[in-house]
């Protein structure tokens, strides 16, 4: 039988984790579904569970210098309505799941589950977020793309917890977010696309592109982004098909009960092309 503990403080949580035999349960919106059993029976968790959702110490959104920090137990709904949060995250959260799921689920929890179709995870990639991971042994920081190794697979030791996520405030001319799900809301994504750019006169000084649900982890390629920086709009127009083919090489979706790989790939590239066209025609 698995054990369950409800810590009364963050420090107590770290101590329990230090035993190495507990898994963190945050909002529960993923794990409660994955391990559900017959109604009226206990959820079939495979490990001892640490219920941290009520730890108010980790429920915060703060700003320091140019950075915004979000604590582990902060729910999507809290994030959505907070004045410090960038519009691109709000665009995503407005159409994310449903009000109830947003009230339960947390951004850090979604990252901990490392779903390639996690909507807010896509935005965390776009924001080039970093995670603060802590245990009684140490505290470390890790960029999100190094933390998420594959679907459901993360770089977290058994005694560690994700304490918070933080990212730098954006300075873009425009940001883009498209979620393609089976319906207008309350849906798991088939394809997700997020992007932003900053222009100086007709020169691109910053650009970021993230594409989700089309490969084992979210696609965000800093090398391609770097190569685009410095382009004039004319360069961008000339290089458009080249850029599309660079991204196409990364896009490797699957067929499943929600969609098929041809559709996912085509739509991802359509959205990327529409984004690039939008920059080009903006001049």
């Amino acid at each position: 039988m698995v054990e369950n503990k409800i810590p009364t403080s963050y420090n107590e949580a770290l101590k329990i984790l230090a035993t190495g035999s507990y898994q963190v349960l945050n909002g529960g919106t993923d794990l409660m579904v994955r391990y559900r059993g017959w109604s009226e029976t206990r959820v079939k968790f495979k490990k001892n569970m640490l219920h941290i959702h009520n730890l108010d110490e980790l429920n915060y959104i703060t700003s320091k210098d140019e950075y915004i920090h979000i604590g582990a137990t902060t729910t999507h709904e809290t994030i959505l309505h907070h004045p410090l949060i960038p519009e691109i995250m709000k665009k995503c959260l407005r159409v994310f799941a449903s009000p109830a799921i947003r009230n339960m689920g947390t951004l850090v929890g979604n990252i901990g589950n490392a779903s390639p179709a996690g909507d807010a995870v896509l935005i965390a990639y776009l924001l080039e977020a970093r995670l603060v991971v802590e245990s009684l042994r140490h505290q470390r920081e890790v960029p999100i793309e190094d933390f998420i190794k594959g679907p459901g697979s993360i770089a977290l030791a058994p005694d560690e917890i994700i304490k918070e996520i933080y990212f730098k405030k954006l300075n873009f001319n425009a940001t883009y977010f498209t979620k393609v799900g089976g319906r207008q809301s309350d849906a798991i994504s088939k394809v997700m696309f997020a992007a932003g750019y900053r222009l100086d006169a007709d020169k691109i000084v910053d650009i970021r592109i993230a594409i989700g649900a089309v490969s084992p982890t979210i696609i965000k390629d800093k090398t391609i982004e770097k190569s685009i920086k410095g382009y004039t709009l004319k360069n961008l127009s000339n290089q458009k098909s080249m850029i599309l083919s660079q991204y196409a090489a990364h896009i490797n979706p699957i067929d499943d009960q929600r969609s098929n790989k041809h559709y996912r790939k085509k739509v991802a590239l359509n959205l990327l092309e529409a984004f690039l066209n939008d920059i080009i025609t903006r001049s």
């Binding site: 369950n4 909002g27 529960g28 919106t29 409660m32 959702h53 009000p99 799921i101």
Partner: peptide, 12 residues
Amino acid sequence: YIVQSCILPLGS
């Protein structure tokens, strides 16, 4: 806040 009690652990 509205929540779905079918996926809400008692611990929360």
